[in-house]
Design a binder for these strands. Sequence first.
DNA 1: CGTTACGTTTACGTGCGCGTCAACTTTTCT
DNA 2: AGAAAAGTTGACGCGCACGTAAACGTAACG
Lengths: 134, 134
Amino acid sequence: MTETTMTIRQMCDSFGVTPRTLRFYEAKELLSPIREGQKRLFTRRDRARLKLILRGKKFGFSLEEIRQLLDLYEMEGGEDTQLARTYKIALAHLAEMEAQRAALDEAIAELKEQIDWGARELAARGIASNTSAA
Amino acid sequence: MTETTMTIRQMCDSFGVTPRTLRFYEAKELLSPIREGQKRLFTRRDRARLKLILRGKKFGFSLEEIRQLLDLYEMEGGEDTQLARTYKIALAHLAEMEAQRAALDEAIAELKEQIDWGARELAARGIASNTSAA
DNA sequence: CGTTACGTTTACGTGCGCGTCAACTTTTCT
DNA sequence: AGAAAAGTTGACGCGCACGTAAACGTAACG
């Protein structure tokens, strides 16, 4: 089987993060690479989680919130109560994300208006606003 | 004319922030309330800006980035070069926000999948997952 | 006229998300 | 064998976005 683990450097290169960041995430229990002697080896699981972590960060979630979300993606055979709790948390996150989406749409619409105004203004002043909005 | 200005406390109450926050934003030149003696009086302009500030924060923009965006919403009669610069910044922000929207849509879709899985799993285990997705 | 309420400045403290050494072990190249 | 490369564990530092406490002004109320 194709060596499925990666060194810390390989992880850093493919995700664009620093070693410090990966160790920090491990300390926060977001990642749990296996150890070969002293060295960390990151599994496919770690990669999947890291992807989710980085995505979560883009949406302004804290690492702690992200940790809760990560659990959802791995509730294979947990306890019933645990599953139910995680499920509720997930619903809350979903609601929050959909609210964010709505707000984002509104913000984009408003910003576009402003930009259009700016384009017209620039045109009126005879300045190139080389941005042919497809 | 209906007194159009608000005290710091009125602002805090209607926006759900603390006085410290408003003073902090003023120090960062995001707000510029007028002074009546020593006291701050927030104008309609300040309220509009604060609304945009809080929205920007929800999307993970830094206060400095938000300050740049705010300029866009007030480039009434600035210099040509200033207008052009602000215009470019706005385009960059728009691109970033649209990218965020795309990523957010994807994340929402995936989270929904997980939630559906969780709902089925809970059902199979005979647990109520009272959340009839409309 | 005191005190209660609301506001102010100044300044140090805090939590998060890492950055940045320092000092050290463990391969790996030549 | 010797040196460079890659990894490790502390531990302190830093920028951001405020929190929080101290000390003070001022204006209104009973």
